[in-house]
Design a binder for these strands. Structure first.
Lengths: 261, 261
DNA sequence: CGCTTATGGTTCATTATTTGAACCACAGCT
DNA sequence: AGCTGTGGTTCAAATAATGAACCATAAGCG
């Protein structure tokens, strides 16, 4: 792997820790030599991507990403555009609505509109969504090129609950079903007692960039209700996509897009 | 310079452009070979720090920094903590209040509370504040170790207006004055007709991490008023620092801090 | 129509950077 | 004192980065 890749992986690892970390820990976690880890950290620190506490000498994520994130949001205000749609969906469904985005090959939650029920599903902003075990992941994957689906299914899949589906053939079937009807359903895939549905927000070339999902307690959700939620999620995802790309790219169907599937 | 440094500089350059950029442009701007620039971009893209538009093939800042920024803010919610203090200061001063933070060796604006006057100073979130030509820059520098001040004064300084002070000796005097009274005053240093004052928000070890500043039209601001603003900025900066560090680190004066001045 | 000149993207021998075992310094502990 | 765990540094050896020259494609133009 390139040096840049290793340094960015270190940054990623550091960002996933639940607290500031020392040099030795970081080196071990990243399978890097102490000296190498240090050089990376120093270099990252120069550019503000990490910072070291002067007292404890431990490292944490720096403030450079905050500036970059502002730039990104200024030109590409995905969340800002999506927010009102999510709020509307949360209002009409009365269940927890969350939005995810692909970042560095993973799907992570970028916004949550909480349900107003006392008994509700809690989703943390920033939490990662496994592709095979969440409605969002399935919806995302279902609209990816076939080659990528197969590449994903070839890897070992973690079983989070008794209901988590890890069989590639079963998953293939679910993905086809999801692609056909436009939304996915995850029945207790990540956590017991939770059912959820999701639809992808796609770029004009058809590639998903994230997902709109509704999560509800299994106990109060009928099969009819979850399907209705799915339809609503699709409508919301499409509305976000249209608003997001609509103004910048007048032509929705590019003839020169080079899909590989 | 290290490969990592070069790649992060590329990212920085890309983020400063006002639109998406092509490979050749990026390579030229960063003084890199086309092949090298491309390898960096591919590597950065793998980790979500840049993304390439599939149609135009141009590059823009990706979504990885957004995730990192969330992590950073979750553990280190500088802005969230500062916000109410800034709002209070904006209310009492009736002028534009802005907060800056050091990021990658530069001071950049991270929040602005606009004045409610029609005739007011506009500061953009994200704008960079030169150390020698802004109240924030001077306030920041004045509380840095002497060695860093000298290193900075040794570099050539840009003259933004007729009033910008670029003479190292004069600046040294102003910095001493600033350090003595706790706040800086910039008289049309960056833009004509604007007077501003700033105070640093310092970490427990005494190092500044950012600045609180008040900017007002010169025409309605007396010498007495700007001094009063300065005193208020100091109070606000100290309050933010206390709130920010107070709960985590009970002891304010660390004996093992290793200052170099 | 073919020529020119842009663009993005790729290759591979040369070269410079990265690497890591061993090292030092310091702090806390027995 | 000695031990053990930190963070941090060094320099010869190994490896990864580099860039001139290359290809492919598309747009502009006489």
């Amino acid at each position: 792997m390139s040096t840049i890749g290793k340094a960015l992986s270190l940054l990623d690892t550091l960002s996933r820790l639940d607290k500031e970390a020392g040099l030795t820990d970081i080196a071990n976690l990243c399978a890097l030599d102490k000296a190498t880890a240090r050089r990376f950290l120093v270099e990252l620190e120069k550019h503000g991507f990490v910072e070291q506490d002067p007292d404890t000498r431990r490292y944490r994520v720096g403030s450079a990403p905050v500036r970059l994130a502002r730039v990104r949001e200024a030109r590409f205000p995905f969340l800002r555009i999506a927010m009102p749609f999510l709020q509307a969906l949360a209002g009409s469904s009365t269940e927890t609505v969350h939005l995810s985005e692909l970042s560095g090959g993973r799907l992570s939650t970028i916004h949550v509109e909480d349900s107003s029920w006392a008994h509700r599903i809690i989703v943390e902003v920033g939490s990662l969504l496994p592709f095979h075990a969440t409605a969002s992941g399935l919806a995302f994957l279902a609209f990816c090129p076939k080659a990528e689906i197969e590449a994903f299914l070839a890897k070992p899949l973690e079983k989070f609950t008794d209901h988590t589906i890890v069989d590639p053939d079963l998953l293939r079937g679910m993905l086809e079903e999801t692609a056909a009807r436009g939304f996915s359903i995850s029945h207790q895939g990540l956590e017991a007692g939770v059912i959820s549905t999701a639809a992808p927000v796609c770029a004009p070339d058809g590639r998903p960039i994230g997902c709109v999902a509704i999560a509800a307690p299994l106990s109060r959700t009928t099969k009819t209700a979850i399907h209705e939620f799915g339809v609503q999620a699709v409508a919301t995802a499409n509305a976000i996509s249209e608003k997001y790309y609509g103004s910048e790219k007048p032509m929705g169907t590019s003839t020169k897009s080079r899909r590989t599937d």
